[in-house]
Computed example of a mutant assay.
Amino acid sequence: MKTHPAAHEPGHSSAPLTGFSQCHLGILSQLQAFEELPALQAAAAQAQTIATHTLALFHDAVYEHHADEERELFPAVLRSARRGEEADFAEAMVRRLTAEHRHIEALWKKLEPAVKAVAKARPVELDLGAVEELVRNYAAHARFEEEHFLPLAETVLRRNGNHMEALGLSLHLRHTPQPIGHI
Rank of each mutant, 00 (worst) to 15 (best):
residue 155 T to Y: 00
residue 135 V to G: 09
residue 180 I to S: 12
residue 99 A to C: 03
residue 46 Q to H: 07
residue 71 R to A: 11
residue 117 A to F: 04
residue 144 F to I: 00
residue 148 H to V: 04
residue 153 A to C: 00
residue 3 T to K: 11
residue 87 A to Q: 15
residue 2 K to G: 04
residue 90 A to Y: 04
residue 31 L to C: 08
residue 164 M to N: 00
residue 119 A to R: 04
residue 80 S to G: 09
residue 138 Y to E: 14
residue 173 L to W: 02
residue 96 R to F: 05
residue 75 P to L: 01
residue 26 G to F: 07
residue 181 G to K: 02
residue 115 V to L: 08
residue 52 T to K: 12
residue 166 A to M: 04
residue 108 W to D: 12
residue 160 N to M: 02
residue 39 A to N: 11
residue 86 E to P: 07
residue 181 G to Y: 02
residue 131 V to R: 09
residue 17 L to F: 07
residue 170 S to I: 02
residue 133 E to L: 10
residue 169 L to M: 12
residue 31 L to K: 11
residue 70 E to T: 05
residue 133 E to A: 12
residue 103 H to W: 08
residue 113 P to M: 04
residue 118 V to R: 11
residue 108 W to I: 11
residue 101 H to T: 10
residue 116 K to P: 00
residue 43 A to T: 10
residue 133 E to S: 11
residue 164 M to R: 07
residue 34 F to P: 02
residue 178 Q to C: 11
residue 43 A to Q: 15
residue 142 A to T: 13
residue 9 E to Y: 00
residue 173 L to N: 12
residue 52 T to R: 11
residue 77 V to L: 03
residue 108 W to P: 14
residue 156 V to M: 02
residue 154 E to Q: 12
residue 28 L to N: 14
residue 139 A to H: 10
residue 120 K to C: 04
residue 86 E to H: 03
residue 47 A to L: 14
residue 49 T to Q: 15
residue 48 Q to C: 12
residue 106 A to S: 15
residue 79 R to H: 09
residue 173 L to K: 11
residue 162 N to L: 10
residue 182 H to R: 15
residue 89 F to G: 03
residue 61 A to F: 05
residue 34 F to C: 09
residue 153 A to P: 02
residue 88 D to K: 10
residue 133 E to V: 04
residue 170 S to M: 05
residue 167 L to K: 00
residue 181 G to I: 00
residue 55 L to I: 12
residue 173 L to E: 13
residue 46 Q to P: 05
residue 75 P to R: 01
residue 107 L to H: 06
residue 21 S to V: 13
residue 99 A to R: 14
residue 52 T to S: 14
residue 96 R to Y: 05
residue 37 L to V: 10
residue 87 A to I: 00
residue 159 R to G: 03
residue 14 S to P: 09
residue 56 A to F: 06
residue 19 G to H: 05
residue 83 R to S: 13
residue 180 I to M: 07
residue 119 A to L: 06
residue 147 E to I: 03
residue 13 S to P: 05
residue 166 A to C: 02
residue 21 S to K: 07
residue 78 L to K: 09
residue 50 I to C: 13
residue 110 K to R: 15
residue 158 R to G: 08
